[in-house]
Structures are given as structure tokens and as C-alpha cells.
Amino acid sequence: MANTAQSKKRARQNERRADINKMRRSRIRTFLRTVEEAIASGDKEAAAAALKAAQPELMRGVTKGIFHKNTASRKMSRLASRVKSLG
């Protein structure tokens, strides 16, 4: 349990940031899910459009500290190759 005023404030801030990070992570996962669904349906145009919308969201997650840069790059690369392989 936090004892000092500083540690109590830090606990409150951590709680608030955790909620914000959870919302951001959920939003990014939703964008990724739309790409996955478009790939599963076999619609190349929809998949490409969904990927184009998901890329800036993923990179925003990197700048906000939600994901590591290489993790986001790996996810984008793998999704892009799967979209490209649709024919």
C-alpha cells in the first residue's frame, strides 16, 4: 500500500494510464481484426483498405508506447504479405 503522498499520486496516475493504454490497445486490435476478417473473406480490395487504415493506428501505438517498434513492423509486414498473396 502506498504510504507517502507522492506514492499515492503515482498509484493514481498508473491506474489512469493503464486504462488509457488498455483502450488504445483495444482500438488497435480492432483495426487488426478488420484486416484479418477481410483476408479471411478473400476480398483483396477490402483487405488492402483495412490494412491502409490499420497501419497509422499501429504506428501511433508505437509512439504512445503501447507496442515496440519492431513488433508493429512485424505485424504490418506479415499482414501486408498476406494481403498481397490474395488473388
Rank of each mutant, 00 (worst) to 15 (best):
A49R: 07
A18Q: 12
A72H: 07
S41N: 15
G87Q: 10
S77Q: 13
A5F: 10
I20M: 12
E15C: 02
S77R: 12
L51Q: 01
R24V: 11
Q6F: 05
A50K: 07
T63D: 11
A49L: 07
T34D: 06
V62Q: 06
K84S: 08
Q6C: 05
A47Q: 05
A11M: 13
G61P: 03
A40D: 02
T71Q: 12
R33Y: 05
N14L: 09
R82G: 04
L58S: 06
V35D: 01
V35A: 05
E57N: 09
K64R: 14
G65K: 03
R25G: 02
R29F: 12
I66D: 02
A54G: 04
S81G: 12
Q13G: 06
A48V: 00
R78S: 10
D19S: 09
Q6K: 15
R17Y: 08
L51P: 00
E36G: 01
K44I: 00
Q55H: 12
T4R: 10
T34W: 00
M1C: 11
A48F: 03
I28G: 02
A50V: 00
M23V: 06
A46P: 02
F31D: 15
N3P: 03
A53I: 01
A80W: 04
K9N: 13
D19H: 12
M76H: 15
S41C: 04
S26F: 08
N3R: 14
R33A: 08
A48Q: 15
E57Q: 14
R12I: 10
N14F: 01
E15D: 08
S85W: 02
K9L: 15
T30C: 06
A72I: 06
A2K: 14
L51S: 01
S26L: 08
I28T: 03
D43A: 03
A54N: 00
S73K: 14
T4D: 09
K69D: 07
A47E: 08
E57A: 13
V35F: 02
Q13A: 15
D43T: 00
D19K: 15
L79P: 00
F67E: 01
T71F: 08
